[in-house]
């Protein structure tokens, strides 16, 4: 019998190893799996490469993971956000490496990685510093840049509703990178507010089919990052 539900966030990240590559869903606070990230901080894995659009805010969630010096490299499109103070400091001191990727290229690299496509050509970044040093090719008279697919050892993703087969629905613009990272993670973990039995979600509306998901954890009332920051919370 298939049942991908685990008891809690701690169990869901228990086998994350030092040096792992981790995809973390979210665009700013929308879709950030705070409870899974906090469980990862408690777990202690270090020297991580983290793939996320941003670098977190305040001192909770992703920013707390970076502050705890568990992240040796960030792959992201926009590491400069209001309330983002932790990453800039570690970047300037050279403690955390940055690979800057245009947002659409980042999304497509993740989709490609999860789809068995090792690389692809995109017009994005041609003639800019982010295209420098990359393989170029002219196709139908237009110049393109070669970009490589991304995969991860673990993907940590926030959903709204999931079933025990791993089918997932998201909330509004919190969907962002979630479905792509679920495809690209060797072990993809979903935290959802509600986990139901198979059949309760209409197959016509499922966004992430369960084959892409390995673990689901129910987090009934997930923390809201901006509320934690407003309350002055610093994790742990």
């Amino acid at each position: 019998m298939i049942n991908k539900q685990l008891a809690n966030a701690e169990e869901a990240v228990a086998d994350v190893f030092d040096g792992a590559t981790i995809m973390i869903s979210g665009f700013g606070e929308a879709g950030s799996p705070i409870e899974l990230i906090h469980a990862l901080i408690d777990h202690g894995a270090t020297n991580l490469t983290v793939i996320n659009n941003n670098t977190g805010s305040g001192e909770v969630g992703l920013a707390a993971l970076i502050k705890a010096k568990r992240v040796s490299k960030m792959i992201c499109s926009y590491p400069r956000t209001a309330n983002s103070t932790v990453f800039p400091k570690l970047y300037r001191s050279g403690e955390t490496e940055l690979e800057l990727v245009p947002q659409g290229t980042l999304a497509e690299r993740i989709r490609a990685g999860g789809s068995g496509i090792p690389a692809f050509y995109t017009p994005t970044s041609v003639g800019t510093p982010l295209g420098e040093g990359k393989e170029h090719r002219t196709i139908n008279g237009r110049e393109f840049v070669l970009e490589y697919g991304l995969t991860a050892d673990f993907s940590l993703i926030k959903g709204r509703l999931a079933d025990t087969h791993g089918n997932v629905l998201y909330n509004k613009t919190a969907r962002n990178f979630g479905p792509l990272m679920a495809m690209a993670g060797n072990v993809s973990v979903i935290q959802a507010e509600h986990i139901v039995t198979p059949g309760e979600i209409d197959p016509e509306v499922i966004i992430t089919p369960g084959i892409f998901v390995n673990r689901v954890v129910e987090i009934q009332k997930p923390a809201v990052e901006s509320e934690l920051i407003a309350a002055g919370v610093s994790y742990p």
Partner: peptide
């Protein structure tokens, strides 16, 4: 030199 580079979706938008 001391700026944190951040691009977001701007390069994709102008390319497409």
């Amino acid at each position: 030199p001391d700026a944190i580079p951040a691009v977001g979706g701007a390069m994709d938008l102008v390319a497409g």
